[in-house]
Simulated assay, not measured.
Amino acid sequence: MSLVINNNTMANSAAQHLNDAYGALGSSTEKMSSGLRINSSADDAAGLAVRELMRSDISTLSQGVKNANDGISMIQTADGALSVVDEKLIRMKELAEQAATGTYTSDQRALIDQEYQAMASEITRIASATDFNGIHLLNGNLSSDTAMVIHFGTGNDSAEDKYNVKIGNCTASSLGIGNASAKNAGYTVSTQVQAQAALEALDQAITSKDKIRANLGALENRLDATISNLETQGTNLQSAESQISDVDVATEMTNYSKQQVITQAGVAMLSQANSLPQMALQLIS
């Protein structure tokens, strides 16, 4: 190679390699400081796209777990209210049994019926007042198959991502008891015959209420299993996303040290290359 002063080719070459090494050192520094292998689409465009999809699913699954837990809280609210309805129905049957025997007078049965009707009114009050986040649960508003949807999945498939919640009407009239209902067997216990008929009506009311509670219990168990599955999915997706996105610290530290040495060598060689034209001046002088 000729010794010239107009063009310092060796210095240009050293500067180019120094810029490349310095850029690689900067990239390695960014990865080490952020903990991420992919900090921009320039690092890995395909990997970035996959990572962002995974991140969106992970975030959605986390919210799905919260939704399912809210659903369980709602079910527990309804079931707790129905446990109180249980007590009232049991008391009403006790009163019907009392009025069904022949040792009480009509006036005494009228007094018994007053409490019987009070219990029926309380059942209706509980059904009308029980709500979760302003949503009434037991007054028949949720008796339709699609009245409430608990959504927990990342998509919108009716078989995979959501449950329809149905809760029957639990007012006294819907259960067929008390004087707010149709004049059927459970209407009153003011006479011995009516009290005897009310026993059967109360059995039917208790059975209807038990079916509602059984359905709620089954759905709560299902949501518990769903939460467990969602948490497992989220953990596995998080692990997969980490494999794509997170930096391998040991490997990157090795690369960082390598680029650091190359950069230092590039600086030294550039300095040497920049001194070459001085040798030409020595020949001229």
Results as ranks from 00 to 15, higher is better:
173 S>A: 13
176 G>D: 06
176 G>P: 13
179 N>D: 15
179 N>E: 11
179 N>K: 07
182 A>G: 09
182 A>H: 00
184 N>I: 07
187 Y>V: 04
187 Y>L: 10
188 T>C: 02
191 T>Y: 00
191 T>L: 00
193 V>P: 07
195 A>C: 04
195 A>D: 08
198 A>H: 06
200 E>H: 00
203 D>E: 12
203 D>R: 02
204 Q>P: 10
205 A>P: 14
207 T>Y: 01
209 K>L: 13
209 K>H: 12
210 D>G: 05
211 K>P: 03
211 K>T: 14
213 R>S: 13
213 R>K: 11
214 A>S: 15
215 N>D: 14
215 N>E: 12
216 L>F: 02
216 L>T: 03
218 A>M: 10
218 A>V: 09
218 A>N: 13
219 L>E: 02
224 D>T: 12
225 A>S: 14
225 A>E: 12
226 T>W: 06
226 T>F: 09
226 T>C: 11
229 N>Q: 12
230 L>G: 08
231 E>T: 15
232 T>P: 00
232 T>Y: 05
233 Q>G: 05
237 L>E: 11
238 Q>I: 01
240 A>D: 11
240 A>V: 11
241 E>H: 01
249 V>T: 03
249 V>A: 07
250 A>P: 01
250 A>Q: 12
252 E>D: 11
253 M>L: 09
257 S>I: 10
257 S>T: 11
261 V>D: 15
262 I>R: 07
262 I>G: 01
263 T>L: 01
264 Q>M: 03
264 Q>D: 14
265 A>V: 03
265 A>P: 05
265 A>N: 10
266 G>F: 08
267 V>Y: 15
268 A>E: 14
268 A>M: 08
269 M>I: 01
269 M>F: 03
270 L>M: 05
271 S>R: 04
272 Q>A: 13
272 Q>K: 14
273 A>C: 08
273 A>I: 02
273 A>M: 03
273 A>S: 06
275 S>M: 13
275 S>D: 13
277 P>H: 02
278 Q>S: 10
279 M>T: 15
280 A>I: 07
